[in-house]
Design a protein around this nucleic acid. Sequence first.
DNA 1: TGATTGTTTTGATTTAGATCAATTTTTATT
DNA 2: AATAAAAATTGATCTAAATCAAAACAATCA
Lengths: 238, 238
Amino acid sequence: MSSAPILNQETIKTRCTICKIRSYSFCRCLDEERLEKFSKISSEKNYTNKENIFIQNDPAKHLFNITEGNVKIYQLLDDGRIQIIGFLYPGDFFGSYKNNKYNYSAEAIGDLKTCVFDQKILEQYLDENPVLAKELLNQTSFELTVAQDRITVLGKLSAIERISTFLTNISEQRKRIGWQNNPISLPMTRQDIADYLGLTIETVSREFSNLKSSNLIKVISSKQIYLPNIDALKDQTK
Amino acid sequence: MSSAPILNQETIKTRCTICKIRSYSFCRCLDEERLEKFSKISSEKNYTNKENIFIQNDPAKHLFNITEGNVKIYQLLDDGRIQIIGFLYPGDFFGSYKNNKYNYSAEAIGDLKTCVFDQKILEQYLDENPVLAKELLNQTSFELTVAQDRITVLGKLSAIERISTFLTNISEQRKRIGWQNNPISLPMTRQDIADYLGLTIETVSREFSNLKSSNLIKVISSKQIYLPNIDALKDQTK
DNA sequence: TGATTGTTTTGATTTAGATCAATTTTTATT
DNA sequence: AATAAAAATTGATCTAAATCAAAACAATCA
């Protein structure tokens, strides 16, 4: 019986060491030794398409890290209007590591695997491992610049500019995490894209058609888009 | 001659200990002893109305903390369109503590006093004082939620909703830092408000007039607004 | 004090994107 | 393969906010 916890420990240790997204996730700053401890304070949790991970204003108890799949985070207004704050990909974290409530709702797009941390335990771990606090600060600062860029997109860009920006950004994000960046796969629906860009589904659809007729995109399938001329597409983004 | 550096040191120490905004700024987490060291790695720098503190894409060398006055941070598109990312008030920090370039431009609104940190020196200090790293992480996380809320404002709210949200947010921010929260002073111009809310100056002006005729605001002077019924104004924000 | 300049307001017109309404296409189910 | 359900596209019309234009108001200064 005494071997059981050790086996378990080994299994947990393995989870982090074999994790495919570690190299571009916030845990990349931890060495082998620290990682072993870190494995123990996290656990795996999976979700299926459209499953809610948490909703806005819930008491914030967890921080999540995507290991596989995609997430949309969004805010709902009381009259039903929705604004998608962001689409998240493997290596991205979401939830809250500190605040008392979640600032947005989170929903799985397709099958999703996450690595979950209890907020309080993570905070303790941060105190003992300042290097992780600094890395989280780095990543949060980067998230902030992304959010600021989005403010400009929503405040100032036209529909065609928003969509061109969206497509080129996705292509760049794919390149960053070492995925195929052309053609790009769009895991979200056209409605999601509309709710992300502050447009209606009809406008998104029309602008996709326009880009298609100007040969700036090639719609392989509605969720597989080839960008024959990324530079020309970038010119559309102003 | 040997007394000069000591005097200087005393002066610098005094600067932090007598600082009026410390209680709501990121340095609030430091004790007396640490604060003394902290004083030495920062310096004071002042600006006048419309003076640029830095511009977007400049190599990021400094982090600034507002001790007195207001700042607008903004992004410029190449065709001259402008989006104001945020208006900053005493206790707010801006610039960059890590990234290689500034993500926005920063300009003084009126007379401005700042506390300036060299990025590299601050980063060293963070390594030695994890408590400050955690506090910066907390504040940056909060900034991120503010930016996310702004994404929803710009993506989904109508003109009248944006302006009502803007006014009630300012009132709440004033309350938070212990200032007069009604009437509120608006240090920025109507054009600035338009560029902040993704609207034109004409639309801002018209909606101010509408709020005036529905008795939801009282324009004491163009930059002094009284909110006779904040709850009713909040209803406008949806 | 009046002249000049900058800021804000108000009015008339235009337009980008929303809304309303069908189709068409894709995906899932039996 | 046929059917149903969901997602995406296309067309016609409408509208909130932009644009264009002018006047009113406020601040600065010689």
